[in-house]
Design a protein around this nucleic acid. Structure first.
Lengths: 132, 132
DNA sequence: GTGGCAACGATAATGATTGTCAAAAACGCA
DNA sequence: TGCGTTTTTGACAATCATTATCGTTGCCAC
């Protein structure tokens, strides 16, 4: 046992959270997801939901957004790096890719000698439906 | 009095917070700023610090950042719209302007029919000093 | 000087997230 | 397949920044 084994076990709860995220559209808070699982009859603890979401986020399988409201929102997203365009009123979200932005951010950081660069970008607006 | 008066009164506390922000470099949390004011002997309540910071932020006089840590950070920034390049280790911050990014964000939002667009962008990295 | 009204500030409340730890479940191996 | 080990789970408590409350204070206009 001197080796560090990945040791990620496959449990019902983990599957349930992952599956739920697969079906959902849009962003949802941890507490939201927990409530939905309970309604379905799944027996999952709130703590586990948080832990699982963190794990998935670390693994890059889901996306985390921190809106001004203060609650963390999670979403199963398409692979790869991208950003979100979110409607202030109804929450409708569009995934947007901006290669130019990515390279700009890396370039700017490099110019200042910063290494190991990452970034967060969210665009907020009012969607066509809500404008009217 | 039919006019909507700004009704923003000039108080010692507001000046104190504003002045402190003027002297400080880098980002500081509300609680940080409150502690500093107390150390100086200023008699300011924590509630007031929060309120004042919110007011200043609304007025666009200071900048708010919401790092993964969960604590809101405030800073007196140069005028105009810009973003920040922050060191993960020591917190050293560089202001960066990216006209290209601004227009890109607006363009993308417009393409999807979103109006009244704003955005947030933070770049994180390890600064030259901390890399070693 | 005086009155109205917004700002202040101590405290309590809120609420999301994280820590704790005994019990249960999953995996590896014989 | 059965067993021991180790991870994971989950109920509950703890944490901690932020917000609400509400009586008091001080600014500003007249």
């Amino acid at each position: 046992m001197s080796e560090s084994s990945a040791a990620v076990r496959n449990t019902k709860q983990r599957s349930a959270v992952s599956a739920l995220l697969g079906e959902m559209e849009g962003f949802h808070s941890a507490q939201d997801l927990h409530a939905m699982l309970r309604q379905r009859g799944e027996r999952v603890g709130l703590t586990t939901v948080y832990r699982t979401l963190q794990g998935l986020a670390d693994a890059g399988e889901i996306d985390v957004m921190r809106p001004p409201g203060g609650e963390h929102l999670y979403r199963r997203c398409s692979e790869g790096h991208h950003h979100h365009l979110v409607c202030r009123a109804c929450g409708r979200t569009v995934e947007v890719a901006g290669p130019a932005v990515e390279s700009w951010a890396d370039r700017v950081a490099a110019q200042h000698g910063y290494a190991d660069v990452s970034h967060t970008l969210e665009i907020f607006g009012t969607c066509p439906t809500c404008v009217r």
